[in-house]
Design a protein around this nucleic acid. Structure first.
Lengths: 221, 221
DNA sequence: ATAATAGTGTCTATTAGACACTATTAA
DNA sequence: TTAATAGTGTCTAATAGACACTATTAT
């Protein structure tokens, strides 16, 4: 009908020791064989019910990660982006806690700090830039950053995540007011200690209704 | 390679006498021949440099409209949305002043109020709903609504457009403070009168640098 | 002058941030 | 006890909205 190469690419983001990082994999085939690239693959019309399914399948098969926060980013298309011909990539982005990547432990998956990306094939650098912009923008007014922390977390931890994403310090009182306004957290009865030579902080978890959708603020941040 | 049907669909929006409206066209071919649908068509890999180009071409050929505000909305894909098979539609949305549609004057183009849409083929109702959500959301913190008015407009007119999109009245003083903060308007030297049996309002136009990109508010409207 | 809407000055209410103070743990 | 960080009360600053007043036109 019309010979468009249809693929999905996924920007899998996590927050590790050297900040926000993307999962990259060495390509197994030409073009760009051996070059680190976003986990991606062809859409399988006989297997994937829709694009979202395809992104889930690709993530699972290439990184071992199962049910992350996953959202369509945009479609990237054109004659110039792939040497094989006119192509269209459905780009998705996913957020996972750092521990989840370690636990999945797929061999080829390497994390690269978004501030020190290697040269990337196709328009993958553009796709990552778009994902970062989306993540940072949505972090201003939603619970999106919660998907970068584990199931249990403290408010100071969460605030540090927001601060890392938005690149600026946040007022503690305002931050807590906003989290209360979002009304998405519930206190766990345990307490934090481990790392702290100081007062332990209350642990929280996401309330069930916000584990697969976002809580939104009226007036940002 | 993989047999995915690749199309573009465009949600062309305008603000007319009965509120926000979408341009619909009767389909010339099966499936759904004769049914009103979004202007759309196949991607032409030999002709379109990328998806955006395809959307421009489709809009021009089906509605006669030339250089509207045009932005990618999302990709809609899957096995179930088109009886012909697994398909992927790149959806774009466009904003134009009402007068532009009249001036283009393509025969088959009908405007339907978004509150009274006819039954639509494929997932076009979903696509329109997504476009409206995007438009309303971006209107909260950007100059997007300016693309629904003509080249010259008054602040009261612009405020009415914002109010129509957001479905609520806005404070006049705050609205004007925000427009000043956006710093995107320049006064035209003429004055408005025509319709008014009262004081004429100052005419404004978009400053050149905002004619093809958005001005953004820090803290929403 | 009157009616009608444009445009502004200013007061009040709401929201965000600064800052300090109390709380709770480990050593 | 001290050091360190969690958590909160409260004052101040910034922003948004209410409201009324002046401005400019047609009749």
């Amino acid at each position: 009908m019309n010979d468009v190469i249809c693929t999905v690419d996924t920007v899998l983001l996590t927050l590790g020791d050297d900040g926000l990082s993307v999962a990259l994999l060495k390509r197994e085939r030409e073009p760009y064989k051996g070059v680190a690239a976003l986990p991606g693959g062809y859409i399988h019309p006989d297997e994937d019910r829709h694009g979202f399914d395809a992104a889930l399948r690709v993530l699972k098969s290439k990184t071992g990660i199962d049910a992350p926060y996953l959202e369509q980013l945009a479609a990237f298309s054109g004659a110039a982006r792939d040497p094989r011909g006119w192509s269209l990539s459905l780009a998705y982005y996913a957020l996972v806690p750092h521990a989840v990547i370690a636990a999945a432990g797929h061999p080829g998956v390497k994390l690269a700090s978004v501030d020190r990306l290697p040269p990337l094939p196709f328009d993958h650098a553009t796709i990552i830039a778009a994902a970062l912009e989306r993540l940072r923008s949505k972090s201003q007014y939603s619970s999106l950053p919660c998907f970068l922390v584990g199931e249990l977390f403290t408010l100071p931890q969460l605030q540090r995540v927001y601060e890392a994403l938005m690149g600026e310090g946040l007022n503690k009182v305002s931050f807590r007011r906003k989290m209360a306004e979002l009304d998405m957290l519930e206190a766990a009865e345990g307490q934090m200690d481990a790392s702290s030579p100081s007062r332990p902080a209350q642990l929280y978890r996401l309330r069930p209704q916000f584990r697969d959708r976002l809580a939104l603020l009226k007036r940002g941040l």
